[in-house]
Structure formats: structure tokens, C-alpha cells
Design a binder for these strands. Structure first.
Lengths: 134, 134
DNA sequence: CTCAATGCAAAGTGTTTGCACTGTA
DNA sequence: TACAGTGCAAACACTTTGCATTGAG
């Protein structure tokens, strides 16, 4: 795992397990998802370590904290600019890479200096549509 | 408060106070903000009532639950389609009404039936820029 | 008068923290 | 070896729930 060394973290087995789990992960997992998955290989893993590691990664910009789910934080290891498509029934989240032009009129800006944006598309996924919902 | 009658709720003083506080409110308050504000006039107001009322209003579509803040839910009495401009420093949230065309390619859709979208613009507000930040 | 709404307190989630111990660098 | 990282449990913040009481319709 050469790529991890360069971010300047101590490479503990726990962190490696978390990093491995997150690498390329497109499920936007919550802290609990991560804890559960990693616990399988490291049964003595603690929540504190998961949260500590996530916070460290977030500070280094290796991770994005999503505010998409009203009930808990979710984490996205994909730091490239992208948007999300969210199933309102099963809460599945899918990445979207479309490049959208989003000009804001100066009156709307109210003096803000814009530094980025994020679009949430809401919809119903194929599985929920077929399954009749819920 | 004629306008409230038509939504078919029992008009208790507590609900009226909450409805009055929310009416035209552009601050995207949290449940605690609402509780604090309304408690001034109704000191015996309970959190349960605030949450109950918010949930009832949400179910009737008279209110939108925002997932903008990672730490708590915020509520928006403005049910007209609109987007938000968020100051990353002071967390101030401003409404934006720009009409954005956001086509999604079929390959991106992955079978989803799109029913809506919401854009979050991130930036730094005038006050935070002048104040030198934080 | 009835049943929905309220108030209170307890319980439930998700997240954070204090502190002694451990293992990477 | 030093000190960042870990594990545990307690503490926190926000939200939900159970239940006896109240009051709007």
C-alpha cells in the first residue's frame, strides 16, 4: 500500500484495514458500516479508531463527509468533484460525474465568494420501482 | 390564522406559536432553535411537541427537512423549489431561486426515475470574508 | 365527550472524549 | 524509545417514545 505512505500517517493494521475497505468503495458507508466491515478482520477494532481515522482522513482531504443522510454521516473516499443520485425509498446513493454549469446571479450571491457546489438528484431506483416500492 | 385551518390540524396554542415562528422564516432553524424561540412565549412547551409538530407538518408537505447540516436536522418552511448557498465558515444558509437545467444522461441515471434535485453552493459569506474568517 | 395533542422523563441513536496501554516509526 | 494511535467505557448531542393528562373540535 505504497499510496498510503505518502499521506504521512502511521500505518497501523487498523488504519490499513479501513483504508482498504474505503479504497474504491462506492457505497458511501456510515461509520457503523465501516466499523462492521473492518471488525470482521479486526474483532478488537473500536469505534473510536474508526472515527479518529475518518476525522484524520477528512482533515487531509482524503475523504468527504456527506450530509446526504438525515440520520447519520456518510463518508465518500471519492474526492473528485461529483454529484449524487439518491433513491428516496431505499436510500441507495449513486455517483454522477456530469459537468453542470451553475451560474449564480450577483444578486443571488449576496456577497458570497463561491467555492464549490454539490447537486443531489432525488429519484426512485430500478429495484424499488420494480419491487413496488418501500 | 385562517391559512392554517385549511391544512386540517388541531390549532393548539403551541402549534400556532410554532407556525407563527416558521411563517416566512428564512433562517432554516433546527428543532432546538424552534424550541428556544417558542419557549419564550410558551415556557411549558416541550421538545416532544416541537418534534411532533414538525413531523406532522413534514408529512403534509408544509415543511422540508434539510440534510445540509451534518450535526442536526434543519427545517425550511419554504416549500417552493429552491436551492441553498451555505457559508462554510459560519454555516449561514441563504435561499437561491435560480432555475437550473440539470439534464442527466441515461447512462448516469442507471434506471432511476428522477423526481427532483437540490443544489448546495458552498462559499464564504461577506461577513466572514471581512471578519478575516472563522 | 372524544380522541388528538401535550408534557415529562426515559430511552435510543450516532458521535465524541478521557485515559491508560500499545506498537509504529 | 517516544509519542501517535488504540480500545474501552463514559459522556454527549440530537431525536424518539411511552404514558398519564389536557383541551380543541
Amino acid at each position: 500500500m505504497e499510496k498510503y505512505r505518502e499521506i504521512g500517517l502511521k500505518l497501523t493494521p487498523q488504519r490499513l484495514a479501513i483504508l482498504n475497505y474505503l479504497d474504491g468503495n462506492k457505497e458511501h458507508p456510515s461509520a457503523e458500516d465501516i466499523y462492521k466491515a473492518v471488525s470482521k478482520k479486526f474483532p478488537m477494532m473500536s469505534f473510536a479508531t474508526v472515527y479518529n481515522t475518518l476525522e484524520t482522513l477528512r482533515q487531509r482531504g482524503s475523504l468527504i463527509e456527506l450530509t446526504i443522510d438525515p440520520d447519520k454521516k456518510r463518508f465518500d473516499p471519492n474526492t473528485k468533484p461529483h454529484h449524487h443520485l439518491i433513491c428516496v425509498k431505499c436510500k441507495k446513493i449513486v455517483d454522477i460525474y456530469g459537468d453542470y454549469k451553475l451560474p449564480i446571479s450577483n444578486s443571488d450571491k449576496e456577497g458570497f465568494e463561491i467555492i464549490g457546489n454539490h447537486i443531489e438528484f432525488y429519484g426512485i431506483c430500478l429495484k424499488c420501482k420494480k419491487g413496488g416500492g418501500e
